[in-house]
Computed example of a mutant assay.
Amino acid sequence: MIELPKEARQQAVASIERYFLESMEERIGNVAAGGLLGFFLEEIGPAIYNQAVRDVQERLRLRVDEVDLEVHEEEFAYWKKFDQRPKRR
C-alpha cells in the first residue's frame, strides 16, 4: 500500500472533506474521509504509481539515447588534424 507522509495525508483528508461539502453538498467526517483516502490509496494508488514508473522509465530511456550525442568523442582523430593541413614543400 502507498503511504503518505502525515502532513500530506492531513491535507488529502481536508481536501476530501471540502470536495464532499462543495461538490455533493454533504459533510463527510474526518474519519470517513480518512477511510476513503485509505481505500483510494490501496485500490487505485498502485495503478497511478505503476503508470508514473512507466513514464519515468520512458523519459530515462530517451535521456540515455541522448547521452551518445552529448558526450560522443570521435575516435582515432589525432592524425586527421594533420591530414587537413596544407602539405609542406
Rank of each mutant, 00 (worst) to 15 (best):
79 W>N: 13
50 N>V: 00
25 E>F: 06
38 G>W: 01
19 Y>N: 07
77 A>H: 07
77 A>L: 05
46 P>R: 01
16 I>M: 04
55 D>M: 08
56 V>S: 08
88 R>T: 05
19 Y>Q: 06
29 G>R: 04
17 E>G: 02
84 Q>S: 15
27 R>Q: 10
74 E>T: 09
76 F>Q: 00
40 F>H: 03
5 P>F: 08
36 L>G: 00
49 Y>P: 05
39 F>D: 03
51 Q>S: 08
42 E>F: 08
13 V>S: 04
37 L>W: 01
50 N>K: 09
85 R>Q: 11
3 E>K: 11
66 E>I: 01
48 I>D: 01
23 S>F: 15
44 I>C: 08
58 E>W: 12
53 V>E: 10
35 G>K: 03
40 F>L: 09
41 L>T: 05
53 V>Q: 07
84 Q>G: 06
11 Q>N: 13
76 F>W: 12
24 M>Y: 12
35 G>T: 03
18 R>H: 09
26 E>H: 07
61 R>D: 11
13 V>I: 05
53 V>H: 05
38 G>M: 01
84 Q>M: 13
31 V>S: 14
16 I>D: 04
39 F>Q: 06
73 E>D: 09
12 A>L: 02
45 G>D: 01
75 E>A: 04
72 H>E: 14
85 R>L: 13
31 V>I: 15
5 P>H: 14
37 L>A: 00
89 R>E: 11
81 K>G: 09
2 I>H: 00
69 L>K: 06
77 A>I: 00
55 D>W: 08
81 K>I: 11
62 L>N: 15
76 F>P: 03
39 F>L: 12
25 E>T: 08
45 G>K: 01
64 V>M: 10
55 D>N: 10
41 L>E: 01
48 I>R: 01
29 G>N: 09
61 R>H: 14
22 E>T: 14
45 G>V: 02
32 A>M: 12
12 A>S: 05
46 P>L: 04
86 P>L: 09
22 E>M: 14
42 E>C: 07
53 V>S: 06
44 I>R: 07
